[in-house]
Amino acid sequence: MNKDQVKGRIEEAKGKVKEVTGKVLDDKGMEVEGNVQKNVGKGRAGFGDLKDDLKKNK
């Protein structure tokens, strides 16, 4: 697992927590911010997965 995969998964988890907290507190701003952070984390993790696949196929 490379650093992009790890950091992406961490950001994804933090975003999910923030999103759920926003829902519980009825704070739309926090909910949206968490959703964005979660999706950015997914993107970074996906980029890390792609890098890992390319490295394995060389």
Rank of each mutant, 00 (worst) to 15 (best):
K18Y: 02
G15S: 06
K42F: 07
K38L: 01
K51V: 07
R44P: 00
D53C: 05
V36F: 05
R9G: 04
E33P: 01
E11K: 10
K28S: 03
K42A: 13
G43H: 11
Q37Y: 00
D53T: 09
V17N: 12
K51T: 05
G22T: 02
K42I: 12
E11T: 06
D53V: 09
I10C: 04
R9H: 09
K42C: 03
R44K: 15
V40D: 07
K51E: 10
K42S: 12
E33A: 12
K3A: 09
D49F: 08
G43D: 11
K28D: 02
G43N: 13
V32S: 09
G41S: 10
G43K: 13
K23Y: 06
M30R: 05
G48D: 04
V32R: 12
V32N: 10
T21S: 07
K18C: 00
G29N: 13
G8N: 01
G34N: 05
A45P: 03
L25W: 05
V17F: 08
G8D: 02
G8V: 04
G43L: 15
G29F: 06
L54H: 06
K38Q: 13
E19T: 02
N35M: 08
F47T: 07
E31F: 05
V17L: 13
K55S: 10
V40H: 04
E19W: 00
